[in-house]
Amino acid sequence: MKKFLNNLKGPNLKNTLVDNAMYLILLSILVLVSIVQPLFLSTNNLTNILMNSSIRILIALGVSGALITRGTDLSAGRIVGVGAVIGGTLLQRPDYAAKFFPGLADMPVLGILLLAVTITALIGLVNGLVISYLHVPPFIATLGMQSILYGLSLIYTKSQPIGGLKDDYTYLATGRILNIPILILIAIAMIGVMWFLLNMTKFGKYIYAIGGNESAAEVAGVNIKWTKIRVYILAGLFYGLAGFLLAAKSGGATANYGIGYELEAIAACTIGGVSTAGGVGKIQGIVSGVLVFEMLKTSLQFLRVPSDLQYVAIGTVIVIAVAIDIRKYLAKK
């Protein structure tokens, strides 16, 4: 902080502003909206923003690996949907009248969570295999997967909404430990896991190397296919967890859960400085990107911006934020 203030005095002011553009944007949204609507700063509202962000962060963490390797994952939202319907259909109250599987015994939450993330990790594996071995560009491979999964989810749920979830399942979203919502704790833990993977493991270094220059990575002996496959498996795990929690949070699930989430996650990552040119992206950037995005959505509601206009505003902010943020990479070239 001291260093930050010192920088403000010197000729580095402009650089400091550009380097921290994302945090300044975050701060100015906060200040602006709380002046107009003091209620924005209420603990309730801030907790709400963080809880919404928690699930979004999981998805952004998953997609970030793909983005850093110069890939993308358009199936993210649909994999979230798969996680949600698996949790929803298998964890209903035993006495619920409209049970999806009427004869189903009371299932353990942890067991179903493991089942859900195993299935979504396998979906990630398929994405990775198609991208690595069939050489289908990630954009197309995951676009195809998006459609396949949507169809399968509709077939599986018979297009019916699922409700009546068990209390110890929904507790994941409503419960608190030491007065901190469990959802937020899970997000923090997963941020830690991803930070560790990216910064402290060979896998992480290879992700950046492949994104930085895939041909150079190949010459340097990096196993590109296997690294990419692991990126998409890891992403599947994150999406599955996100979907499982999303159903718990809303107390139900439909095949439509998570629709469009991949685009919001990609936008949040880009806002947070993950370069679509590959090789660049930090955890703190990804997290602040999601927070800026969620805060923006809530702010617009608080400012009573008509919902149609909100889309226009969000799109504009994404482009402006990235235009400002990208300057720090351009300048240092």
């Binding site: 270094k205 190397a209 010459v219 090789g279």
Partner: peptide
């Protein structure tokens, strides 16, 4: 196929 331009000298 030599350098990783955006990565640090260390990496």
């Amino acid at each position: 196929n030599g350098i990783f331009g955006v990565l640090s000298v260390r990496d």
